[in-house]
Amino acid sequence: LIKDKNKNIVGEYTTDSDGYIELENDLEEGKYYAEEIQAAPGYIRDTQERTFRVKRGETTEIVWENTAQYGQIQVIKKSKDYNSINGLPAGTLLQGATFEIYDKAQNVVDTVVSNERGLAISKLLPLGRYTIKETKAPKYYGVSGETFEAEIEFASQIVRLEVLDESVYTNVVIGKSGPKQVTPGMQMKWTISRVANNSSIRLTSFYWRDNLPYQAVQLDKIVTGTYNTRIPYKVVYKTNFNQTPRTLADNLDPSVNRVLQATPTALGLKSGEAVTQIMFIFGTVPSGFRMVDNAYIYGTVRKSASGSSFVNKADVGGLNDSQQWIMSNDAWTTTIYRAPTYKKPTLPTTGW
């Protein structure tokens, strides 16, 4: 509202989409008063009256700053059902769930985590409509796949939402077997079996890995095995000279059983360099993912192999929705047999 020096109303004006009011020809030279009678939606009205002067040939500018009206979003996190792992009943308030809050432009305006009372409390937010997504669930629970909406309609309003998470079962498995006894120079074979995601949820970054006793055995080749889900995968390896994974094969069809040559010559290894680890990388696998045909790892026992035995270790794992590793492992011990050295006996001297 604009008034002249005698407080007579000159006119009522509204800011445009850029926040401006421009009065080029409406005001004559002199003293005026300006008063905000209604703030923009979501902001608090400034009640202070301002004084300004209009001078011929000059531009007079008044900057008016409004404080936004704020409210808050509170998410209550509860267990949807009985959890057989931690024993918590349905309705239990859960700590450790993470939520992201987005404005109408889908910008993240806050990230909140539920406390020991199951409450995830946002900072003060301007009036408006928001969407909320759970990005991390508490341990032994799955992330809710729903997108929730909340609208803060007036100052100091607290909008409360209740989000329920279902309990999850997580389990992965791998089997490892091989010969019980070998001799130096002998070719041997290990079997990788039962690789599976037995969890009730999908797992990300899923892999199985074999750590080779490279000082006792040289890797020769790998038979990949087959898998029940059409997820292309790759095989990488590390060596005693280089711990950075190098790709042996990529974009492999899980339904095809392939033989991958992995001798030092086939891999172009340096003198004295040996493969210490191989890893099958699948990415995201669904619940029920499993191996169909076993995988095999072939190697040659080094003639210089020392000691009475060596251990071959394999493990499998993946990340759940809470970014926790679900892992399992197995191992196989093989004994090195060395034939006793025969020493010709000294016979007594007889005859003439």
Rank of each mutant, 00 (worst) to 15 (best):
N66Q: 10
T67L: 11
T67I: 11
G71H: 04
Q72E: 08
Q74A: 14
Q74Y: 02
V75K: 00
V75T: 05
I76G: 09
K77L: 07
K77F: 09
K78D: 06
S79M: 02
S79F: 09
K80H: 14
K80A: 15
D81Q: 10
N83W: 13
N83D: 15
N83M: 11
S84P: 09
I85F: 15
I85R: 13
I85H: 12
N86Y: 04
N86F: 04
G87D: 09
G87Y: 10
G87N: 12
G87H: 10
P89H: 13
A90W: 09
G91V: 10
T92F: 00
T92Y: 03
T92R: 03
L94K: 10
Q95H: 10
G96V: 03
G96Y: 01
T98L: 04
F99K: 04
F99G: 06
F99Q: 04
E100V: 02
I101D: 00
Y102I: 01
D103N: 14
D103P: 07
D103F: 01
D103T: 07
K104N: 07
A105S: 13
A105E: 11
N107L: 02
N107T: 06
V108L: 01
V109W: 04
T111M: 02
V113Q: 05
S114N: 04
S114G: 07
N115C: 06
N115Y: 00
N115D: 15
E116W: 08
E116S: 15
R117Y: 06
R117F: 09
R117L: 07
R117S: 07
R117G: 06
L119Y: 05
I121M: 04
S122N: 05
L124N: 12
